[in-house]
Amino acid sequence: MNNQKVFFPTNIKFLRERKKLSQEAMAEILGIGRSKYNALENGQTKAPQPEDLIHFSNTFKISIDSLLKIDLSKISELKLRELEAGSDIYLQGGNIRVLAISVDKNNKENMEYVPVKAKAGYRTGFNDPEFIAALPKFSMPNLPKSGTFRMFPTTGDSMLPIPEGCDVICKFVADWLQVKPRTLCIVVLKGEQDFVFKLVTIGSEGTVLLESLNKLYAPYTVTVSEVLEIWQFHSYQTQEVPDTQTDLMEIKRMISSLQDQVLKKL
């Protein structure tokens, strides 16, 4: 016997109250009578008409399946904004995002490396087990035992002083709301950039602020619907030897020393 719980009545009430609308105002938007809307919201109509379901789906920008099967009051505001922006798993044909990984002979997770030549294809292959299995893979000592790690190459100088062309090791972030403001991350985007290495701040309004360490590059904002994956920075590897102390750094040190001496004499 199918005991699938239906959340439609509680969901439409939750969504109406989230928009701060009365039953009468909501009924007017939907083009139905208030008494009919009240019956739907209170579960007195056990089998809503298909056209009513379509109206609710179009009005709230959430699929009929999600309205029926998911308790929307239990998910985060960020996830709700994702659904409204078109990231609804049911609207996308039920292709629920599963992180593809590979393991060694001892069933221990490998760390995959995304080489530059595979960078352009990662956006379409990130959740394809065959694509991930074809990536170079290896293990590294001293990584935390919990979590999934992946290595990405960086290009450009937007993250200086982290050297251009280094490889960054990152940990997969499942819950984006746990990302603290200005956290270093690799962000996989739907657009032409493939993925970027930035300071990430998740906004409550369903936006993601991306900032460079190099102040010559202006920050910019994308919507959560443009983001495919977020990987939090763990460490980086480079073949570059750090520069010796520059003249500017020496001048700053001297100024700081003079300031300390002046303060001591006051």
Rank of each mutant, 00 (worst) to 15 (best):
N2Y: 08
N2Q: 15
N3V: 11
F8C: 09
N11R: 10
N11P: 12
I12H: 02
I12A: 00
R16D: 02
S22C: 11
I29M: 15
Y37F: 00
N42A: 04
P50K: 04
D52A: 00
D52S: 01
L53N: 02
F56V: 02
S57G: 01
S57E: 00
F60K: 03
S66E: 02
L67M: 01
K69T: 00
D71L: 02
D71F: 02
K74D: 03
I75Q: 03
S76L: 03
K79W: 03
L80G: 02
R81D: 03
S87G: 06
D88N: 07
Q92G: 10
G93E: 09
G94R: 08
L99Q: 08
L99Y: 07
A100S: 14
V103P: 01
D104Q: 06
N107S: 01
N110K: 09
E112I: 07
Y113M: 13
V114P: 07
P115Y: 12
A118C: 11
A120D: 12
A120M: 15
T124L: 15
G125C: 08
D128S: 13
P129R: 15
A133P: 06
A133R: 15
A134N: 14
L135H: 13
P136C: 09
S139T: 15
N142I: 10
P144R: 12
F152G: 10
P153Q: 10
T155W: 04
G156K: 05
D157Q: 05
M159F: 12
I162L: 10
E164W: 00
G165T: 03
C166Y: 01
C166A: 01
K171W: 01
A174E: 05
D175S: 05
D175R: 07
W176H: 04
L177P: 00
L177N: 11
Q178H: 09
V179W: 00
P181Q: 08
L184K: 14
K190M: 05
K190L: 06
K190A: 04
G191Q: 09
Q193F: 03
Q193S: 09
F195Y: 15
K198A: 11
K198I: 08
T201M: 13
I202P: 09
E205Y: 04
V208T: 05
L209W: 05
K215Q: 04
L216H: 09
A218E: 08
V222E: 08
T223F: 04
V224A: 11
S225R: 06
L228T: 03
Q232D: 06
T238Q: 00
T244R: 10
T244W: 07
Q245A: 05
T246W: 04
T246I: 05
D247H: 07
M249R: 12
E250H: 07
M254S: 13
S257C: 06
S257G: 08
L258W: 12
Q261Y: 09
